[in-house]
Design a protein around this nucleic acid. Structure first.
Length: 296
DNA sequence: GTATACCCTGACTA
DNA sequence: ATAGTCAGGGTAT
């Protein structure tokens, strides 16, 4: 703490984003697993750094990163009208948007995103959060906050692939451990993997992702949406199955969830909502409980 | 194309 | 209290 730059990195600054933002909804809607809210301040590690965020009306108080990073990370570099006009097409969506306005799809690091959603298969949000915390603790760089609290960065591909399969199992990954083991090993020796995928058109990028062990349609679609900003991606989980059936009569949640059924639902959504179908998905997902309760 | 068993953990019920 | 059931994606057959 004698280093002045270390201290100034945690200095709290303020800026007013050009476009509206709902920070609470954005950080708690289930797209991210590493942000915690204490009192009115969010803390999390992104880009290898400990960052704090607090929203006060239109102002964003922040420390640990640059303003430019936040504008990119929180997708604050484009107007909400431009996004909404790219998927909004009926009263269901208009209603969902008005109930959760200011929701942003965060630009996640592709590597962290891929491993996180590999953890996410067959798990709920608290469980996923635990698995990722365990991985960070086991293989991530430690970061000491000014108050002495120790945080951990998300492990690099090298650090994660250096962790043995047994150590990974110790992170409560369960049967996901071998998937993560193999995929991390493949990526650690292939630094260009993300740039290649980024340049591919949607369906091809999807096929490439699904070739990694443990990555099926749902995980691939999440990584394309949250890690690669392919906003036409429309991940379908059991919630979206229920919602799409209730709102549009597509698919049948009573029947078994076959790959063909998955494709039917996501293709319907991509055609109906268009190039920002993924944003429609997030808005619907954010108020999923109300559809389950029949309140919509 | 589709059905089924299996992987693992946590939450819930009996 | 402990056993049983179920949810939740991906894979192999």
């Amino acid at each position: 703490m004698t280093d002045r730059t270390e201290m100034s990195a945690y200095e709290v600054r303020v800026f007013e984003p050009e476009f509206p933002l709902n920070l609470d909804v954005t950080l708690s809607c289930g797209q991210l697993f590493r942000w915690k809210k204490q009192d009115d301040t969010w803390q999390g590690v992104a880009d290898g750094k400990l960052i704090t965020l607090r929203q006060d009306g239109r102002q964003l108080h922040f420390s640990g990163c640059s303003e430019a990073f936040l504008i990119s990370y929180l997708h604050l570099d484009c107007a909400p009208e431009d996004i909404v006009s790219g998927f909004c097409c009926d009263t269901h969506i208009t209603d969902a948007v008005s109930r959760t306005s200011g929701l942003r799809i965060v630009r996640q690091d592709p590597w962290e995103c891929l491993i996180s959603y590999l953890c996410a298969q067959n798990a709920n949000i608290p469980f996923i959060t635990r698995m990722i915390e365990n991985l960070c603790h086991a293989a991530g760089e430690s970061i000491t906050a000014p108050d002495g609290t120790v945080w951990y960065a998300f492990p690099t591909p090298d650090a994660l692939s250096a962790l043995s399969l047994e150590e990974k199992r110790g992170c409560t990954l369960g049967y996901r451990a071998p998937y993560i083991h193999k995929t991390a090993a493949a990526i650690a020796v292939d630094p260009g993997w993300a740039d290649r995928i980024r340049k591919l058109p949607f369906e091809e990028a999807r096929r490439v992702l699904m070739a990694y062990p443990g990555i099926g349609p749902k995980v691939a679609d999440c990584v394309l949406l949250f890690g690669f900003q392919k906003y036409e991606s429309f991940p379908v989980d059991t919630w979206m199955r229920m919602i799409m059936h209730r709102l549009y009569g597509v698919g049948d949640p009573e029947k078994s969830f076959t790959p063909a059924e998955y494709d039917r639902i996501r293709r319907f959504a991509q055609e109906r909502f268009g190039p920002y179908a993924g944003y429609a998905q997030e808005y619907l997902f954010a108020i999923r409980e109300s559809y389950a309760n029949g309140k919509f």
